[in-house]
Computed example of a mutant assay.
Amino acid sequence: MASAGVIDVHAHVVLADTLGAAGAFGPELGRDGEGSPWFRIGDYHLHGVRYEGSPFMDPALRIEAMDRAGIDLQVLSPNPLTYFHFIPVAEATAFCRRHNDALAALIDAYPDRLAGFAAVPIQDTAAACEETERAVRELGLLGPYIGTDVGRHLNDAGLDPFYETVAALDVPLFIHPAPAGIDGPPGDANLRQFDLDIITGFAAQEAIAVATLIYGGVLERHPRLDICLSHAGGATPALIGRLEAACMKRPWAPPQLRHEGAFRNSLRRLWFDAHVHDARVAALVVELVGMDHLVLGTNFAGWDQGEITFLGERAVALGANARRLLRAAA
């Protein structure tokens, strides 16, 4: 990783060895009577997305596509449909262990091109700590990867041992949204058309995560913890004025945030991937958080894959940032 120039930290993977690893919850691949693919998680079916024979599951195709895109190294992460944060702990733990073992084996086959984040059963803090330690110490994965919705607030004191474990291991924590209602409670019915759960719902989840981490004092309680959020924090840049105003005007605001610039200073302690689709948004993100806490993210092979040329010469600079975030030699 030390010599990698362009590093993509936002690239999901689907691993054949994990099929059925969560018991009745799946995952399961299949095709309908017309040959169209589906992917099942519990009672949820994703139709029309091809995983088999695509970069999601075929590493040779992934490497070829990386070469065409000019990406030197990708950090692979769990498919958002398979976070399994709401299923029983035993099934979630079994899936995460299988996933992380399979991911480590894939990386071993392509050590110069691939790295990975670990799936963890965050619904049980002790189990999440144990799997994080195993994945990092024994498998060489770069840190844990969780959804924005973990069944409790991200500032819940019950998560503090998990944050402490991540900080003690000196690895980053990556947070990324998942569609509501996959293995947990259904989300807003208004988001169930036009892919709004992904287009706007993800942006809302990321902004809520940012606000919760800052307002809830997570960064204050864990000053050595590095957290990276996807999609440049979602709607956070557009909401910066309201987020800052709340610190000065709402009665629940903690003392450390009750002065001018406090929220923005805390925002600069977080990391973000630069997966946005508009140069104006990218410029605002750089203005708010600076270049030094931004890393390249593409959602590689996804419907909204970003081009590294969007950031031009900055892509290599973001690679240097990624090496710092991922604790790799410069």
Rank of each mutant, 00 (worst) to 15 (best):
E244A: 14
P255I: 11
I198N: 11
R258L: 07
P223S: 11
S230M: 04
D17W: 15
H222S: 03
L81P: 00
P111F: 02
A22Y: 03
V9D: 00
D108G: 15
C228G: 09
F263G: 02
F39T: 06
H12L: 07
Y145S: 06
H85I: 04
A211S: 09
R324E: 12
G48E: 06
P172K: 05
D72H: 06
G312D: 04
H12S: 06
V171W: 03
V150D: 01
R221F: 08
D149S: 12
D112P: 01
Q205R: 15
L142G: 00
A157E: 11
G42I: 08
A301P: 06
H293S: 14
A115E: 08
R314Q: 11
D124C: 04
Y163V: 00
T165S: 09
A167I: 07
F84Q: 03
G70K: 02
L114V: 03
H293R: 10
R113A: 04
A11P: 01
A235R: 07
R242D: 08
P121C: 07
F86D: 15
G302Q: 05
R327C: 08
A211H: 06
G233T: 05
D101G: 14
M66D: 03
L288G: 00
V14Q: 07
D278E: 13
E28M: 14
N299R: 10
S230T: 10
G184C: 00
Q123D: 08
W252T: 12
A119Y: 00
E206G: 09
P172W: 05
D188Y: 10
P161M: 07
P177M: 01
L154G: 00
P55S: 07
I71P: 00
R113D: 03
W271H: 03
L169H: 05
D226N: 15
L114S: 02
G184V: 00
V89T: 13
L103V: 01
D156G: 04
Y145T: 05
H275Y: 14
A329M: 12
V218M: 09
Y145V: 03
P144E: 06
D156L: 04
N190K: 14
A126C: 09
T93I: 11
E220L: 15
G53K: 10
L219I: 06
G302T: 02
A94D: 11
Q256I: 12
D226M: 15
D101V: 10
V281M: 11
A317F: 09
